[in-house]
Protein backbone atom coordinates (compact mmCIF):
# COMPACT_ATOMS: atom_id res chain seq x y z
CA UNK A 1 0.00 0.00 0.00
CA UNK A 2 3.05 2.30 -0.24
CA UNK A 3 1.80 3.72 -3.53
CA UNK A 4 -1.61 4.62 -2.17
CA UNK A 5 -0.92 8.29 -1.20
CA UNK A 6 0.63 9.08 -4.60
CA UNK A 7 -2.14 7.31 -6.50
CA UNK A 8 -4.84 9.00 -4.44
CA UNK A 9 -3.27 12.41 -5.06
CA UNK A 10 -3.17 11.66 -8.79
CA UNK A 11 -6.84 10.65 -8.81
CA UNK A 12 -7.92 13.64 -6.72
CA UNK A 13 -6.04 16.29 -8.70
CA UNK A 14 -7.20 14.77 -11.99
CA UNK A 15 -10.70 16.07 -11.23
CA UNK A 16 -9.50 19.67 -11.29
CA UNK A 17 -8.17 19.36 -14.83
CA UNK A 18 -11.51 18.20 -16.16
CA UNK A 19 -14.16 20.81 -17.08
CA UNK A 20 -16.77 18.11 -16.44
CA UNK A 21 -16.01 18.23 -12.71
CA UNK A 22 -16.88 21.93 -12.52
CA UNK A 23 -20.07 21.37 -14.49
CA UNK A 24 -21.06 18.62 -12.05
CA UNK A 25 -20.17 20.75 -9.01
CA UNK A 26 -22.08 23.77 -10.36
CA UNK A 27 -25.14 21.66 -11.17
CA UNK A 28 -25.00 20.06 -7.75
CA UNK A 29 -24.81 23.42 -5.96
CA UNK A 30 -27.72 24.82 -7.99
CA UNK A 31 -29.92 21.81 -7.16
CA UNK A 32 -28.96 21.72 -3.49
CA UNK A 33 -29.33 25.52 -3.22
CA UNK A 34 -32.83 25.35 -4.68
CA UNK A 35 -33.74 22.48 -2.32
CA UNK A 36 -32.45 24.46 0.63
CA UNK A 37 -34.36 27.59 -0.38
CA UNK A 38 -37.64 25.72 -0.92
CA UNK A 39 -37.29 23.76 2.34
CA UNK A 40 -36.50 26.87 4.37
CA UNK A 41 -39.56 28.64 2.97
CA UNK A 42 -41.77 25.61 3.41
CA UNK A 43 -40.77 24.43 6.89
CA UNK A 44 -40.05 27.91 8.38
CA UNK A 45 -37.57 26.13 10.58
CA UNK A 46 -33.95 27.03 11.28
CA UNK A 47 -33.37 23.28 11.42
CA UNK A 48 -34.22 22.92 7.73
CA UNK A 49 -30.94 20.98 7.41
CA UNK A 50 -32.81 18.06 8.98
CA UNK A 51 -34.98 17.71 5.87
CA UNK A 52 -32.29 18.90 3.48
CA UNK A 53 -30.30 15.77 4.25
CA UNK A 54 -33.05 13.61 2.75
CA UNK A 55 -33.08 15.80 -0.36
CA UNK A 56 -29.29 15.74 -0.68
CA UNK A 57 -29.35 11.96 -0.36
CA UNK A 58 -31.61 11.93 -3.41
CA UNK A 59 -29.61 14.56 -5.33
CA UNK A 60 -26.49 12.47 -4.75
CA UNK A 61 -28.12 9.53 -6.55
CA UNK A 62 -27.95 11.75 -9.67
CA UNK A 63 -24.60 13.47 -9.19
CA UNK A 64 -22.44 10.69 -7.69
CA UNK A 65 -22.88 8.49 -10.80
CA UNK A 66 -21.55 11.44 -12.84
CA UNK A 67 -18.47 11.51 -10.61
CA UNK A 68 -17.87 7.76 -10.62
CA UNK A 69 -18.81 6.89 -14.22
CA UNK A 70 -15.39 7.73 -15.60
CA UNK A 71 -13.30 6.25 -12.79
CA UNK A 72 -12.44 2.94 -14.46
CA UNK A 73 -14.71 2.88 -17.52
CA UNK A 74 -12.81 5.78 -19.11
CA UNK A 75 -9.44 4.21 -18.40
CA UNK A 76 -10.66 0.95 -19.84
CA UNK A 77 -11.95 2.69 -22.97
CA UNK A 78 -8.81 4.78 -23.59
CA UNK A 79 -6.52 1.87 -22.75
CA UNK A 80 -4.77 3.67 -19.85
CA UNK A 81 -6.03 0.95 -17.52
CA UNK A 82 -3.61 -1.52 -19.08
CA UNK A 83 -0.76 0.93 -18.44
CA UNK A 84 -1.87 1.33 -14.85
CA UNK A 85 -2.16 -2.39 -14.15
CA UNK A 86 1.25 -3.13 -15.66
CA UNK A 87 2.77 -0.57 -13.28
CA UNK A 88 4.02 -1.93 -9.93
CA UNK A 89 0.77 -1.21 -8.09
CA UNK A 90 -1.76 -3.67 -6.78
CA UNK A 91 -5.41 -3.85 -7.81
CA UNK A 92 -6.36 -3.00 -4.24
CA UNK A 93 -4.29 0.19 -4.43
CA UNK A 94 -5.93 1.13 -7.72
CA UNK A 95 -9.44 0.58 -6.36
CA UNK A 96 -8.87 2.31 -3.01
CA UNK A 97 -7.07 5.30 -4.57
CA UNK A 98 -9.86 5.84 -7.06
CA UNK A 99 -12.40 5.55 -4.24
CA UNK A 100 -10.55 8.04 -2.02
CA UNK A 101 -9.98 10.46 -4.90
CA UNK A 102 -13.69 10.46 -5.78
CA UNK A 103 -14.66 10.76 -2.12
CA UNK A 104 -12.29 13.72 -1.68
CA UNK A 105 -13.75 15.48 -4.69
CA UNK A 106 -17.36 14.83 -3.60
CA UNK A 107 -16.67 16.06 -0.06
CA UNK A 108 -15.19 19.22 -1.58
CA UNK A 109 -18.32 19.53 -3.72
CA UNK A 110 -20.54 19.20 -0.62
CA UNK A 111 -18.46 21.61 1.50
CA UNK A 112 -20.00 24.87 0.18
CA UNK A 113 -23.43 23.68 1.35
CA UNK A 114 -22.17 24.13 4.92
CA UNK A 115 -22.60 27.83 4.20
CA UNK A 116 -26.37 27.28 4.29
CA UNK A 117 -26.04 27.26 8.07
CA UNK A 118 -24.32 30.63 7.87
CA UNK A 119 -27.14 31.92 5.62
CA UNK A 120 -29.68 30.82 8.25
CA UNK A 121 -27.86 32.75 11.00
CA UNK A 122 -27.65 35.80 8.71
CA UNK A 123 -31.45 35.94 8.48
CA UNK A 124 -31.92 35.58 12.23
CA UNK A 125 -32.27 31.80 12.55
CA UNK A 126 -30.61 29.68 15.23
CA UNK A 127 -29.71 26.33 13.72
CA UNK A 128 -28.78 23.43 15.95
CA UNK A 129 -25.11 22.92 15.06
CA UNK A 130 -25.01 19.44 16.57
CA UNK A 131 -27.76 18.41 14.18
CA UNK A 132 -25.88 20.01 11.27
CA UNK A 133 -22.68 18.09 12.05
CA UNK A 134 -24.51 14.81 12.48
CA UNK A 135 -26.27 15.41 9.15
CA UNK A 136 -22.98 15.97 7.36
CA UNK A 137 -21.38 12.91 8.94
CA UNK A 138 -24.36 10.95 7.59
CA UNK A 139 -24.08 12.56 4.17
CA UNK A 140 -20.38 11.71 3.89
CA UNK A 141 -21.07 8.08 4.96
CA UNK A 142 -23.87 7.82 2.39
CA UNK A 143 -21.69 9.36 -0.31
CA UNK A 144 -18.87 6.91 0.45
CA UNK A 145 -21.31 4.01 0.02
CA UNK A 146 -22.61 5.52 -3.24
CA UNK A 147 -19.08 5.96 -4.61
CA UNK A 148 -18.07 2.38 -3.83
CA UNK A 149 -21.11 1.13 -5.75
CA UNK A 150 -20.44 3.53 -8.62
CA UNK A 151 -16.78 2.48 -8.70
CA UNK A 152 -17.69 -1.18 -8.99
CA UNK A 153 -20.18 -0.54 -11.79
CA UNK A 154 -17.64 1.63 -13.58
CA UNK A 155 -15.19 -1.28 -13.44
CA UNK A 156 -17.61 -3.59 -15.22
CA UNK A 157 -18.02 -1.58 -18.43
CA UNK A 158 -16.02 0.53 -20.85
CA UNK A 159 -18.99 2.79 -21.54
CA UNK A 160 -19.28 5.77 -19.16
CA UNK A 161 -22.93 6.46 -19.98
CA UNK A 162 -23.91 2.87 -19.23
CA UNK A 163 -21.91 3.05 -16.00
CA UNK A 164 -23.70 6.27 -14.98
CA UNK A 165 -27.18 4.96 -15.81
CA UNK A 166 -26.60 1.63 -14.09
CA UNK A 167 -25.21 3.36 -11.01
CA UNK A 168 -28.18 5.72 -10.90
CA UNK A 169 -30.65 2.81 -11.17
CA UNK A 170 -28.93 0.88 -8.37
CA UNK A 171 -28.61 3.91 -6.08
CA UNK A 172 -32.16 5.05 -6.74
CA UNK A 173 -33.41 1.56 -5.90
CA UNK A 174 -31.39 1.20 -2.72
CA UNK A 175 -32.04 4.76 -1.56
CA UNK A 176 -35.62 5.22 -2.60
CA UNK A 177 -37.53 2.27 -4.08
CA UNK A 178 -36.70 -0.34 -1.44
CA UNK A 179 -38.79 1.59 1.07
CA UNK A 180 -41.91 0.79 -0.95
CA UNK A 181 -41.14 -2.93 -1.10
CA UNK A 182 -40.59 -3.42 2.62
CA UNK A 183 -44.25 -4.18 3.26
CA UNK A 184 -44.72 -6.49 0.29
CA UNK A 185 -41.99 -9.05 0.99
CA UNK A 186 -43.73 -10.87 3.82
CA UNK A 187 -44.47 -13.85 1.61
CA UNK A 188 -40.85 -14.64 0.67
CA UNK A 189 -39.39 -18.08 1.53
CA UNK A 190 -38.23 -18.80 5.11
CA UNK A 191 -40.61 -16.13 6.33
CA UNK A 192 -40.85 -17.87 9.70
CA UNK A 193 -37.13 -17.55 10.36
CA UNK A 194 -36.31 -14.36 8.47
CA UNK A 195 -38.21 -11.15 9.02
CA UNK A 196 -38.03 -9.99 5.40
CA UNK A 197 -39.61 -6.55 5.86
CA UNK A 198 -37.02 -5.86 8.55
CA UNK A 199 -34.20 -7.06 6.27
CA UNK A 200 -35.39 -4.88 3.38
CA UNK A 201 -35.77 -1.88 5.69
CA UNK A 202 -32.26 -2.51 6.99
CA UNK A 203 -30.76 -2.59 3.48
CA UNK A 204 -32.68 0.58 2.55
CA UNK A 205 -30.23 3.51 2.61
CA UNK A 206 -32.82 6.05 3.79
CA UNK A 207 -33.45 4.15 7.00
CA UNK A 208 -29.78 4.58 7.92
CA UNK A 209 -29.86 8.29 7.17
CA UNK A 210 -32.80 8.95 9.49
CA UNK A 211 -30.81 9.06 12.74
CA UNK A 212 -28.18 11.42 11.32
CA UNK A 213 -30.97 13.78 10.25
CA UNK A 214 -32.17 13.96 13.84
CA UNK A 215 -28.73 14.78 15.18
CA UNK A 216 -27.86 11.25 16.25
CA UNK A 217 -24.71 9.38 15.30
CA UNK A 218 -25.39 5.67 15.57
CA UNK A 219 -22.71 2.99 15.24
CA UNK A 220 -25.23 0.70 13.48
CA UNK A 221 -25.56 3.15 10.61
CA UNK A 222 -21.81 3.70 10.38
CA UNK A 223 -21.15 -0.06 10.37
CA UNK A 224 -23.76 -0.50 7.65
CA UNK A 225 -22.30 2.17 5.37
CA UNK A 226 -18.76 0.90 5.96
CA UNK A 227 -19.97 -2.60 5.05
CA UNK A 228 -21.34 -1.30 1.76
CA UNK A 229 -18.04 0.48 1.10
CA UNK A 230 -16.12 -2.70 1.90
CA UNK A 231 -18.33 -4.80 -0.36
CA UNK A 232 -18.11 -2.26 -3.20
CA UNK A 233 -14.30 -2.11 -3.00
CA UNK A 234 -14.00 -5.90 -2.81
CA UNK A 235 -16.16 -6.30 -5.92
CA UNK A 236 -14.14 -3.62 -7.72
CA UNK A 237 -10.87 -5.38 -6.93
CA UNK A 238 -12.29 -8.71 -8.11
CA UNK A 239 -13.60 -7.03 -11.25
CA UNK A 240 -10.13 -5.61 -11.97
CA UNK A 241 -8.54 -9.00 -11.31
CA UNK A 242 -11.00 -10.73 -13.63
CA UNK A 243 -9.43 -9.24 -16.75
CA UNK A 244 -6.57 -11.73 -16.23
CA UNK A 245 -8.70 -14.83 -16.40
CA UNK A 246 -11.98 -14.00 -18.14
Amino acid sequence: MTNLPALTKREFTAYFYSPMAYVIATGYLIFSGLSFYILLKDTRDANAMRNLLTFLGFIHTIFVPMVTMRLIAEERKTGTLEMLVTAPVSDVEIAVSKFLGALGFTVLMIAPTLLYTWIITRVGGRPDYGLVWASYIGLVCLTAAYISIGLFISSTTANQIIAAILTFVVLFTVYFLLGFFAGSVRGLPWKDTINWPEVVTYVHFSSHLESFGKGLVDTRDIVYFLSVVGLGLFLTVKSLESRRWR
Binding site: Y22, L29, G33, Y37, A46, L115, I120, V123
Partner: peptide, 30 residues
Protein backbone atom coordinates in the same frame (compact mmCIF):
# COMPACT_ATOMS: atom_id res chain seq x y z
CA UNK B 1 -36.32 27.50 16.08
CA UNK B 2 -39.02 28.78 13.77
CA UNK B 3 -37.93 31.25 11.13
CA UNK B 4 -40.21 33.49 9.12
CA UNK B 5 -38.45 35.30 6.28
CA UNK B 6 -39.25 38.84 5.20
CA UNK B 7 -39.32 39.55 1.45
CA UNK B 8 -35.81 40.98 1.49
CA UNK B 9 -34.46 38.05 3.51
CA UNK B 10 -36.21 35.67 1.15
CA UNK B 11 -34.45 37.32 -1.80
CA UNK B 12 -31.13 37.24 0.03
CA UNK B 13 -31.39 33.49 0.73
CA UNK B 14 -32.30 32.80 -2.89
CA UNK B 15 -29.45 34.90 -4.30
CA UNK B 16 -26.75 33.43 -2.07
CA UNK B 17 -27.89 29.78 -2.11
CA UNK B 18 -28.94 29.45 -5.76
CA UNK B 19 -26.62 31.93 -7.54
CA UNK B 20 -23.65 32.95 -5.45
CA UNK B 21 -22.46 29.51 -4.26
CA UNK B 22 -22.65 27.87 -7.74
CA UNK B 23 -20.81 30.93 -9.09
CA UNK B 24 -17.89 30.08 -6.83
CA UNK B 25 -17.61 26.67 -8.52
CA UNK B 26 -17.77 28.30 -11.97
CA UNK B 27 -15.16 30.94 -11.03
CA UNK B 28 -12.84 28.30 -9.60
CA UNK B 29 -13.22 26.13 -12.70
CA UNK B 30 -12.66 29.10 -15.04
Amino acid sequence: RSLVLTDSEDGYVFRVAVFFLPLIAIAFGG
